[in-house]
Design a protein around this nucleic acid. Structure first.
Lengths: 278, 278
DNA sequence: GTCTGGATATCGCAT
DNA sequence: ATGCGATGTCCAGAC
């Protein structure tokens, strides 16, 4: 873990520094006044301003302003870094093919340029993903519904892989689609695609249930599930249990008969909006 | 555009430096050996390793290893940064409410700590978005289909906003869904939701066409469009014209020989799969 | 390579 | 605030 830093270097000095860092496989940051040009899947231009540029030895590059989590420009891993001096400017270029893309950062002034030797062997351990939710259901299928029996995960269908395929207490086929967050219409559509695929596979005589599992559901999605004859079960991905309700107060006894009362499940929510297609 | 940098500072010196930088509204980078704990929408732990931490004055924080474009840990804008020294470690903490989240970065050693005064007034100009594709179609509706007449953009329906609503040469209602990239099954589902919504709105007697516009389409999505009676039109978001074809092999006679260089087509598209629900 | 779908997605806009 | 959808999404896994 060493750092090699130049302050207000000449472009030539920065260039030498950069090329040595690329050679060593260091991670690099450059801070200075620059413009940015991107051409690839789309095309963008960014006028002069102060930005922090990060170059990683895996070929990724990030251009960060002082706002937002998302870089204003970037390239993903696999690109080739290069640097040069032209017309009194330091040009840092990142290119790749397939797709053909080019990112140019032109510095009129470099305030600081650092090269970092990185040693990092630790892997991130993360809890609370959709995969965790799946494990909860597989280890205790009754949380989904009494008598539910998982038969296969990632079961292939014409419409793609089904998260959990199983059958209910009556032996009816059940498609289970899992989401770690509050779900919107797109999740309902996704479930519908899978149920449709199994109908095509099994024939229309065979009943197929579709169950969407998530901590909560938006009203529009709940309406759609109703119309399409699909079901919703509220489970928290971290605990594998029904989320803590807040208001509601009508925790009736249970029984969960056919629920048609209209509303069904509350909104609870995890405090975040829902994602969607795309 | 000034930079203030400490090399191998004591935790106490780093702390003073950080607090002054927060006060000034500077952007900050810290490089050193650290562990990271996150608890919020999910929960994660990251063991010791060398990382580059970026703190922005808008409240976002990024923890970058030497790989990937995506930070290994982060918080979005709106969080509150704080720093302290405990048990011989420098703790950098980012918290927010709604959702309740906390990110702790504990440095056992700080190799470098820099504060940047950023001046950036330029805005990114980007070409090739879905919005550009829409403008192409609105300014020349015939590229979609001869006689097509756009009537409304962002038209509201029970299922959400329809990109372009219009009618064809026969006066039949047309729902147009735009995508800047190659489309998969989720885009077909999205279009279907909108068409269904208009059927509910107009009644089943009224015909409603659904047209998906994108540079290309996957086979599974094309099959689904077929089954659902939906249509596809290939247009490039940058040019607003049909994408250059490559192979398809059966370039019959048709003219457009022109540049025959031979190859002709690769697969169009930008080399990435499609996005999807979720 | 393409296809498919998850993500602590982030972000912007409308409600 | 929540809902909803775009993104140069990125990314992993499957084929």
């Amino acid at each position: 873990m060493t750092v090699n830093t130049l302050h207000r270097p000449t472009h030539r000095d920065a260039l030498v520094h950069l090329e040595a860092a690329f050679e060593r496989g260091d991670m690099v940051t450059i801070f200075g006044r620059c413009t940015v040009d991107y051409d690839g899947r789309a095309t963008s231009e960014l006028g002069p301003g102060d930005r922090l540029v990060v170059l990683k030895p895996d070929g990724s590059i990030l251009v960060h302003t002082d706002e937002k989590r998302t870089p204003v420009n970037w390239q993903p891993p696999g690109c080739t870094h290069s640097a040069s001096v032209r017309d009194g400017r330091l040009l840092v270029r990142s290119t790749r093919t397939s797709p053909d893309e080019r990112l140019d950062v032109q510095f009129e002034r470099v305030e600081q340029c650092s090269a970092y030797a990185v040693d990092d062997r630790s892997d991130l351990e993360l809890v609370g993903s959709e995969e965790d939710l799946r494990q909860h259901i597989l280890s205790d299928p009754d949380v989904l519904e009494a008598g539910f029996e998982p038969l296969e995960t990632e079961r292939q269908s014409d419409a793609g892989a089904i998260d959990i395929f199983g059958e209910d207490a009556d032996g009816v086929a059940v498609v289970v689609e899992l989401k770690r967050r509050r779900v919107g219409p797109s999740a309902a559509s996704q479930l519908r695609r899978y149920v449709d695929a199994l109908h095509r596979e099994f024939g229309d005589d065979e009943p197929v249930r579709g169950v969407l599992v998530a901590p909560s559901v938006t009203e529009r999605a709940a309406d759609m599930l109703d119309r399409e004859g699909l079901e919703f079960v509220a489970l928290d991905p971290e605990t594998g249990e029904p989320p803590v309700e807040e208001d509601d107060g009508e925790s009736r006894d249970e029984g969960e008969t056919a629920d048609d009362d209209g509303d069904g499940n509350r909104d609870t929510d995890d405090g975040d909006g829902n994602r969607d297609d795309a």
